[in-house]
Write a protein that binds this DNA or RNA. Structure first.
Lengths: 354, 354
DNA sequence: GGTCCGGGTTGACACGTTTTAACCGCCCGG
DNA sequence: CCGGGCGGTTAAAACGTGTCAACCCGGACC
């Protein structure tokens, strides 16, 4: 650590364009271009309505002054701006990071800005951050809700804020949602484990208040039922968070607690990586003694100590399509047909459960 | 995929609070609370200056009407809002995802919003997104610049936007920066490889226009020099992007190109995981035939097929501290001493280079 | 020659908030 | 009884842009 200079006091932060003439607004531009402010606004928003030479003059003035339009003023006047909110459960999770990448890419192309917000799976924090998004008068919100968010989203919509649920199923028909069929995915995973002869299966999951965890449990049970096993045959271990660390601890508890299962299905790859670590440390052979499956197929699943079998979700596409739907609704609220897009997940077989 | 209802046309998005009385602004609240708009503003911004009972009345009205302050109007009036910009190279990279988590946590606590922006290591896109941030009148910017950004940041500062460079060294004394010593880190890594007897070392890197890649090369050379080897002894393979896929291809080229080196040092863990994959597929034993080191120590490095030795960086802390510095400057521009914080990285030894 | 037309431009107002100076009633000291 | 603070409140003036009705002017038509 080293201290640098301290020129701040000497040269206080002060607004001013290249020509040091105070903040440059639309009217400074107008003055320089010998034009009225209204015309400058037209150049910015409806260039086709202004004569080519006038436009050129204005554009030159804009460049000369280094003018940048004031987004707050636009938003205030127009009632809505070019900003959307993205609320995820945990940006540190590669699943959401990849979704965010899709969102950002799509927005960047359309001139929208993304306000990132993480609920950290806490309803209070979700609430607080939603308030912040509302204050920012975002045009729309992409949200992976912590719990069922039907009511909250309706309130948003009443305020003129479009919303698309991300990786979450719509509970009402007038909502947009983009999701992947988690029940089917988990069914796929557990069916695969059973097909390769697993007698007992354990489910390592995050809090069941998280829809993804609950749905994947349902899928796991469905697969068991289809194989003629009772739902109770699924041993469950609930980890407090969906991180490798929590997964490792969950697996340690599982191992301490009697006979290990033939197979373990994890609610996501992060948990699975922790579980894998615990198994290997305990000298358990994977997949020899215990087969293991994750969920999400994050990039690192393939590179794990024992490459993880997993359920692939189109993460980047999820982000892009959700954004597309949201912006479509924003640009054309009347003619927008709400729709629920449901992707089908895909089984990816690797060594952890070949 | 399935289509849902289409109630949008029937019930167009229309603003309106719970009482359906048009958009609720400060004056609706004022009216209901039998108070002037100015007083409502005071309740919001300087609660201590307003009498307790008046305040209670106003707060009740705010709740009744479901009023949310209009951030655009605040920002317009105040000239600056409670929003900062975060520009990273790639949000899909766990390094930046973790940094972003730190930034978001710190901001969330202080009531700031984060606008996420990714330059995808492209100067044009960085430029475009910076313009967008400028339009949003962000209070400050956290940026990992694509190339040297000294000039651009100065222009920002002239406009009253504070800036802190993230994972980048300040080139001028009146800039804030938070970084980790990449030269020292790479030195550590390569010195470790040499100490365990590597004769030949290769460096798999991303584009050298990225400072991190260039600095880590410098560190690698420094370690070689310290061991009495010429800089030319470092075989270099440049991957076009810093992803596992690119790393894998780079390693394939390296293997195809004559005798494999005794050790490979990668500019980050993502590349290293790709390299590891290529090595294992080619039947190369790690670390027996080739030792391997990554950089960043992302969470997944420890879980890799052969757990990766790496250089640990305090990613989350990087984000938090940079944000802290930025917000300090925002809240108190005059008394702010610019500083460059440089963290020292840490060698983490695992099986890939024990 | 007058009228009408329409593209181009203008000027003024509205958006919701913050802020400042003024104002009001009140108590206290003179 | 009066003048002056003082805490609390108010009215009005900004902030920078978007919008819209009005306006101007050259040309076409009658």
């Amino acid at each position: 650590m080293s201290d640098g200079g301290r020129s701040a006091a000497a040269r206080p932060l002060s607004p001013g364009g290249r020509h040091a003439g105070g903040p440059v607004g639309i009217k400074q531009v107008a003055q320089l271009a010998r034009v009225s402010p209204g015309t400058v606004s037209n150049v910015l928003n409806r260039p086709e309505r202004v004569a080519p030479d006038t436009r050129a003059r204005v554009e030159q003035a804009i460049r000369d002054l280094g003018f940048v339009r004031n987004g707050s003023a636009s938003t205030l006047r127009a009632g809505q701006g070019r900003t959307i909110g993205l609320m995820v459960l945990d940006i540190g999770n590669p699943f959401f990071a990849e979704v965010a990448r899709g969102v950002e890419d799509e927005c960047s192309g359309r001139g929208y800005a993304v306000i990132l917000s993480s609920s950290a799976a806490s309803p209070e924090r979700e609430e607080r951050n939603m308030l912040m998004l509302a204050e920012q008068r975002v045009r729309g919100v992409l949200i992976t809700p912590v719990d069922d968010a039907g009511g909250r989203l309706d309130r948003l919509r009443e305020r003129g804020v479009a919303a698309v649920m991300l990786d979450h199923i719509a509970t009402q028909p007038h909502q947009c949602a983009v999701a992947v069929d988690d029940v089917a995915g988990a069914d796929l995973a557990v069916a695969h484990l059973l097909a390769r002869g697993a007698g007992t299966v354990a489910y390592v999951t995050g809090p069941l208040s998280i829809r993804q965890c609950a749905d994947r449990r349902a899928g796991a049970r469905r697969a068991l039922a289809a194989a003629g096993r009772p739902a109770a045959a699924l041993r469950e271990v609930v980890a407090p968070t969906m991180t490798p660390r929590a997964g490792q601890q969950a697996a340690e508890r599982l191992l301490a607690d009697g006979q290990p299962p033939d197979a373990i299905f994890c609610a996501n790859d992060l948990l699975a990586m922790g579980v894998l670590r615990a198994l290997l440390l305990a000298g358990v052979d994977v997949p020899g003694d215990v087969a293991l499956m994750g969920y999400d197929d994050i990039e690192f699943a393939a590179a794990a100590a024992v490459p993880l079998s997993s359920i692939r979700q189109p993460m980047y596409q999820l982000g892009r399509i959700a954004t597309e739907m949201l912006l479509d609704e924003c640009d054309n609220p009347a003619g927008h047909a709400h729709q629920q897009v449901m992707f089908q997940p895909e089984l990816v077989v690797r060594e952890s459960a070949p």
